[in-house]
Design a protein around this nucleic acid. Structure first.
Lengths: 158, 158
DNA sequence: GTCTTTGCAAATGATTTGCAATATA
DNA sequence: TATATTGCAAATCATTTGCAAAGAC
C-alpha cells in the first residue's frame, strides 16, 4: 500500500510546506504507475496531459522532495536516467525490495527477499561494517524473453 | 590477480587494436589502485603525472575500451561519477563481487560472497527469470566510522 | 603508406539553479 | 500580506564526439 493523497497533504502541512496542485499531481502519477519505474521525463509527460503548464524543473524538484520525505525510491539502471517508484510505506524503509532487470525487453520487476539479512549479519560480524541500507540488482532475461529466445534457437536448428 | 601488461598488449593485437602509450598507462594506473575505485577524472590526474600531454577524452575512451574487453568493472555510487576498478580476471566474470559503501567516510570496500547464488536459483525457479549478472551495494558505516561514532556518543553522555 | 588513435574544443543531455511572477496559508 | 513555490531560461557538469594532426604497424 503506497501513500494516500490526504496523508501526503498532512505530511506537507506538518513540515510547513505548501500543498500545491503540482505536488499532488506528481504523486498521483507515481501512484498510478506503481509497478513501472518512471524517469523524470516520463513523469513530466504524464503530468502534462492534465496540467500542460507544469515545468520539468518542478517535476525534478517535487521528486527530490518526495525522496527526502522517503515517500518514493530511486533506481539507477545506468542507462543515463534515474527512475522513481512509489514506496511501499514503512515496509520499504529498512527492507528495500530488489530489482530484476531484463536485458532484452528492459522491463524492471521488483521482488522481496529476506536472504540479504543473513548477508548483512555476516558482514557485520566478519568485517565490523554496520549495514543500514542495500541495493540489489539482478540482470538477466525475464520469463517471456527467455522463452522467446529458446523458441528462436529451436527454429534456427530445424 | 588482475591483468598483466603483456597480456593486455596481446589482447589488443589480437583484436587488431593498436598498443599505445596512453592505453598502457591507463591500465597501469588502474592496476596500481586495485583497491580504490577511481573516477575518470581521478585516473586522468594520476596518468597526467607522468604523461602531461594526455587528454581526458582519451581516458574516457580507454576506460570504455577496457570495459568492452571486460578487463575492468564499473561501479555507480549515485554521486555523479562512474568509478572503475580493475577486474579479477575470469573469477569476476560471472561472479562479480559486491561493495560496501561507508556513508560517513565514503570508502568503498569489495567483498565476495556466494550467498547470492541461492537467491538467483530461487528467482529462476519461482519467476522464470534467468539471472546472468548482479550488482549488490550495501550502504552503512565501516568499522572505523562505527567505532568513532560510538565513542562520540559516549563522550556526549558523560 | 594506411588505418587507428589522440588531443582539443565544441556538443550533448540529464539535472540544477537564479529570479521574477504566482500561488498558498 | 508574507513566505513558499513555480516556470522559464540559463547554467552546470560528467561524458561524448568531430576533426585534423600524430602515432602505430
Amino acid at each position: 500500500m503506497s501513500i494516500d493523497k490526504e496523508d501526503f497533504k498532512k505530511i506537507l502541512k506538518e513540515k510547513g510546506l505548501k500543498v500545491t496542485r503540482q505536488r499532488l499531481v506528481v504523486l498521483e502519477v507515481l501512484a498510478e504507475n506503481d509497478t513501472k519505474h518512471l524517469t523524470a521525463e516520463e513523469i513530466y509527460e504524464r503530468v502534462k496531459v492534465e496540467n500542460p503548464d507544469i515545468g520539468l524543473a518542478t517535476v525534478y524538484r517535487t521528486v527530490q522532495l518526495l525522496l527526502e520525505l522517503e515517500l518514493i525510491d530511486r533506481i539507477n539502471l545506468d542507462d543515463g536516467y534515474v527512475r522513481y517508484e512509489i514506496g511501499d510505506m514503512e515496509k520499504t524503509k529498512h527492507h528495500r525490495h530488489h530489482h530484476l532487470i531484463c536485458l532484452k525487453c528492459g522491463n524492471v520487476m521488483a521482488f522481496q527477499n529476506d536472504m540479504l539479512e543473513a548477508l548483512e549479519t555476516g558482514v557485520q560480524s566478519a568485517l565490523g561494517f554496520h549495514v543500514t541500507d542495500h541495493e540489489v540488482k539482478l540482470y538477466g532475461f525475464c520469463k517471456d524473453c527467455s522463452e522467446k529466445e529458446k523458441k528462436e534457437n529451436q527454429e534456427v536448428k530445424i
